[in-house]
């Protein structure tokens, strides 16, 4: 059953919050890490999910956060099948990729690293999730000064109305320059 139905047509199937070392799925505790610090916390969450995905270890923090969030939302959602253009990815945050940008900036004087530079774009997390699940669909990364869920849902509605999109992973995906993190994601259906 959907948690609630929006004014128009889309339904929110699952909701996920990741903050302060805790993962809440549909309002209930899904996982609690021993550490709230982003590095150790994401590591423990990855282990908890029993994933085996080599590319994960190359990702920056924003991509790891979004990747794991998407894994949790997609797990058990049998309607989401890989190799599709029916799943859209619509994200936003305030800090763009500034967490990695700052790391890259420090490396410039030394030897600039292409492996770091590629993550100086907020939409790379969309690429990572797309590669994992072979999602060819619509996607967009917005920057907002604070989480504006309505903007994202309005856009998602327009995707349901105008494109092949039937499902969407939508929401807030933030890792700031001080390694503070917050994810608020939804799995929506048309």
């Amino acid at each position: 059953m959907p948690l609630f139905t929006l004014k128009n047509m889309s339904k929110i199937i699952k909701e996920l919050v990741i903050e302060q070392g805790t993962v809440l799925l549909n309002g209930e505790t899904f996982f609690k890490g021993e550490s709230t610090e982003i590095g150790p916390f994401l590591k423990s969450l990855y282990k908890h999910l029993e994933l085996k995905y080599g590319k994960y270890f190359k990702m920056d923090l924003l991509s790891k956060l979004g990747f794991l969030g998407a894994e949790i939302l997609i797990d058990g959602a049998n309607e989401i099948v890989p190799e599709t253009d029916e799943v859209a990815l619509v994200f936003a945050n305030a800090s763009s990729s500034l967490n990695t940008d700052a790391n890259y900036q420090e490396s410039i004087a030394d030897i600039p690293s292409p492996a770091v530079f590629v993550y100086t774009l907020p939409n790379i997390v969309i690429g990572e999730i797309s590669i994992r699940h072979k999602f060819y669909g619509e996607h967009m990364f917005f920057i907002q000064t604070e989480y504006n869920k309505e903007e994202l849902l309005k856009y998602t509605e327009s995707l349901f109305a105008e494109t092949n999109t039937k499902y969407a992973i939508v929401g807030w995906l933030e890792v700031d320059m001080n390694n503070e993190y917050n994810a608020q994601l939804m799995l929506c259906s048309k």
């Binding site: 253009d85 790379i124 690429g127 797309s130 590669i131 699940h133 060819y136 619509e138 967009m140």
Partner: peptide, 8 residues
């Protein structure tokens, strides 16, 4: 808009 789902 569409993704390659291939490489970053």
């Amino acid at each position: 808009i569409s993704n390659d789902a291939n490489h970053i």
